[in-house]
């Protein structure tokens, strides 16, 4: 039960959606783009978000696109995590997405919704960072395409009225060796103490993390260290820790010290498996 009223719009085109947003915003309706909507629905009930208009993006064909072509794959922002998983289009993304919430919820949670979440985890971003994906963003001045690293800096850097339309991923990453590990406090379902995703290319393995710091990240500096096969695993992990982009997080899921331990153990196992 959402205790306040809002209007619901379901535009059929990108242009219509953006125009709607701008118009509703001008009228002081606090519009929100609605993809899966699960976060808005739950936050609204708890009085943690307010809007008088939601704009559902699921009617826009581009946001629902799912395609593999020779050069690149296209993943619409309004695809659900279950759809992506079941399509097997990008197994790393499927696997990492499968750690989020639970299967039934993932029938509603979308890729775009997850990576734009107000929460700190946004685990679906990890594979997209690892695969150097591009993002297509729509806004008042039309659509633009840019590398994810440019748009995602701790969170999505979207201008007012902008929304994610698609991710473009180089097809060569599709079937690369990958791992995705999620460690929780003590439950099958829930937020991570840490989530680690890896993708291995000719030039070495790539690593991205969620839950470790206050935001998900991939660090090339850390990757460089972790790929120094001549160093013992423990030493690499120790050095990597010095290069973390922010302090290790401490919260009710884990203290910083314990989170560090879980991260170390997870990396130990991952590196051992990769190099076995």
């Amino acid at each position: 039960m959402i205790p306040f009223d809002f209007n619901y719009y379901r535009p059929a085109t990108i242009e219509e959606a953006v125009a709607l947003y701008m118009r509703l915003d001008q009228k002081g309706k606090w519009p929100l783009y609605w993809s899966g909507g699960t976060e808005i629905a739950t936050f609204a009930r708890l009085n943690q978000i307010y809007t008088e208009a939601v704009i559902d993006l699921k009617g826009i064909p581009e946001c629902r696109a799912l395609a593999v072509e020779e050069q690149e794959m296209t993943l619409g922002s309004a695809l659900t995590l279950s759809e992506i998983h079941d399509s097997e289009i990008f197994p790393l993304l499927g696997a990492t997405g499968s750690g989020i919430a639970d299967r039934t919820s993932r029938n509603k949670i979308t890729l775009g919704g997850n990576v734009c979440s107000e929460l700190i985890y946004k685990e679906a971003i990890l594979p997209l960072l690892l695969a150097d994906s591009d993002v297509i963003v729509a806004g008042v001045s039309g659509a633009r395409r840019l590398p994810i690293a440019q748009l995602f800096q701790r969170s999505m850097q979207l201008a007012k009225g902008e929304f994610l339309v698609q991710f473009k991923v180089n097809t060569s990453y599709r079937l690369r060796p990958y791992t995705s590990v999620k460690k929780r406090k003590q439950s099958a379902i829930g937020y991570p103490i840490i989530t680690v995703a890896t993708l291995t290319t000719e030039s070495g393995s790539r690593f991205a993390f969620s839950g470790l710091c206050d935001f998900p990240f991939r660090s090339e500096e850390i990757e460089k260290i972790l790929n120094q096969h001549e160093l013992p695993v423990g030493e690499r992990i120790r050095q990597a820790e010095d290069r973390l982009p922010a302090p290790i997080r401490s919260d009710m899921l884990a203290s910083a010290n314990y989170r560090r331990l879980v991260w170390q153990v997870t990396l130990e196992d991952l590196l051992a498996n990769m190099e076995a």
Partner: peptide, 14 residues
């Protein structure tokens, strides 16, 4: 931990 997301209980398969 005031929700069943943060107050976690045993689930199927555990």
């Amino acid at each position: 931990n005031t929700t069943l997301r943060t107050y976690s209980v045993l689930r199927y398969g555990e």
